[in-house]
Design a protein around this nucleic acid. Structure first.
Lengths: 205, 205, 205, 205
DNA sequence: GATGAATGAGCCTTCATTCAT
DNA sequence: TATGAATGAAGGCTCATTCAT
């Protein structure tokens, strides 16, 4: 009975994408996915090990690309010689933002999966993870530029955490609301300005 | 038998609170709740209609109090004569913040339910709802004070939406991370300042 | 839809008995049991928690009765004053045998379950368990009567274990082969004599 | 691709041995075996027909050697002229025992498979089969030596069956408990003596 | 001969909900 | 009103086996 069906893997992934996007990870049904993909439920296990493996296969590349930016971003920034002020930081920050936006609009569905449909998977706290990177990076930056409030111990980790979390949640709204690329990029610029203003004036009152 | 046990309803609610907090709405089991409350699963249906009704009973009062602040807050503000500038807005805003913080620390569990454990219920998008109120309020305010950027059509609804969403997500971090009252209030003040700075300088560059 | 059906529990147990006897624990299917009992698979879980719980419900009483004989048997024997020789032991042993045979022929199916169909359950090593009791009892007996070979260290635990195991396996053949009561009792007497002979002459060569 | 890997068959058998020993026939997984053997599951079917065929390939030689002893043993014994008494029988019996022990300790894993891991295969009743041979042999012997109890019809087939079964179960304890060779041989001698004592005194009271 | 993806029936189990008592 | 057994669909997952390549 075992037929060699071409494109089964692709069909499964495509249908899984639809199902996860529509219902979220927990409520998604492998049976439904298999039925829609016109294959047997067992095939999913052959190809992807299990439910989480299937979800993983859809997002892992994008996840790695995304986190690589954050993990390596910091390093790159501080290796750069001209970084001792808000402007250079802003420039660097904008470049990075650009790259992330490129990624988002290259893989919008994968991002939606990660941001909005990952409850129940190991990605469900992805924003917290990004916040972790960002806070570390921010602290190092404040140190390097010798920010007074920060050096005076006036800025706690928790506050930076909240601020950063707030930022990412705002940022990923363009995903949550399926904002078209042009519009999304525009608003992210504005949002970045808003945010940068707040940060600068808050740190240097 | 029909034992008339005093406080059955309360026991159910108490145990439901624990279960929902521990597992979230979807993964919570009515059987477990009934067992812990030493009652029958059927009782839950008699008293609360169904699973969502039970969840509802735990959060509805707080939910109404919370949304009332937002729904009526605006009205109150604009009925007030002296509101035509950032400062009066800030003052009003801070008072409202105070009230919400009071509410949060009076009903911390209920808030956690609403913010962190409501996936699968009609409350799962509560932040978006608050954002809706806030954006409407903000727009009216910007109009009233005659903000130039806004009047020039430079500030879109979507941007305000993102900004507001970002704010609430940051704000509710104190709930997500079970921040103790004193600490929480402190960070909210800082966060509000950060945010207010951003807003002011972004709107009046 | 929930009907109050009388005798469901009994029907489930009856059909489970048949299924477990026919296929053994592992290969038995709860679906089949439920279908035969004309009920829903869920009912099994309502009543018996799970598959092992269902099996358990069928054998636990008999299991306890059986092990009680062994656990308490020893105590009773050694509390008895006249026990210092092979004859009193034989008499006691025969009385106990009688009781076990009574139990077997009162609950033949339950014994078959325990002896022949319990692979996969916690009862799968029941014979080893009985052997454990028996060996302990035998050692104490040999000590009390001052058997020379035993006191000389000539009889190892392993040997007693093997002998005892051999005994029980022979004994339970009447269950494995569904021997009718009259016949079974007769053969057990003979088998006991055979065994007793071996034991006596082996211990006192 | 069809790589011609030398020893695939051997690797499959080796890994199957491990898997069957660890999990028993029923719970063993062909996928696991194939994976460990670094081959495809299909290869198992090509070479061994199916799961039972694979198990069979591991034990069939030893099984045949073992049963040959029993099937031919009898013939040999009765062809021998000097056999008309317990002593010659004992001598013959001991020689045969020796050969079986040699076999066991030459193929310990195969024996464990047959005795402890064969539930679900056609070998699961191997002890009963051996018992069959043994009982036939014993009966003929009792007839030849003119044992009175037997000739008087005092000794039924069922009793001989039980006794024999008891013997084999005791005997194979050395396999069930992985007894090392030296120890095993020692206990089998003791056990044989125990058993022989019982038999002799029971038949000639 | 080797491959290993596909099969699809089957497994045990969980759950919110219903309703006769 | 309270009970809690019964429901039955649905869940994720495993497996021996087949067969096109």
């Amino acid at each position: 009975m075992a037929k060699r069906i071409k494109g089964v893997q692709e069909r499964i992934q495509q249908c899984a994408m639809e199902e996860f996007l529509r219902k979220g990870y927990i409520d998604a049904s492998l049976r439904t996915i298999a039925t829609n993909a016109e294959t047997a439920t067992g095939s999913i296990y052959t190809r992807f090990k299990d439910k989480e493996g299937l979800f993983d296969s859809l997002v892992i590349d994008v996840y790695h690309k995304l986190t690589k930016y954050f993990a390596h971003g910091e390093t790159q920034f501080f290796e750069n010689e001209v970084h001792g002020n808000f402007d250079s930081m802003k420039k660097f920050s904008n470049e990075m933002l650009e790259k992330i936006l490129d990624l988002i609009y290259e893989y919008p569905k994968e991002f939606k999966l990660l941001i909005s449909c990952s409850t129940g998977t190991k990605y469900e706290n992805i924003i917290d993870e990004l916040v972790g990177y960002e806070v570390a990076s921010t602290k190092r930056f404040l140190e390097v530029i010798g920010n007074k409030r920060y050096l005076a111990g006036d800025i706690s980790d928790e506050l930076l955490h909240i601020i950063s979390n707030s930022y990412f949640n705002g940022f990923f709204e363009i995903i949550r609301h399926d904002m078209p690329e042009e519009q999304g990029r525009k608003y992210i610029i504005d949002f970045g300005n808003f945010y940068g203003s707040g940060f600068m004036y808050f740190m240097n009152p």
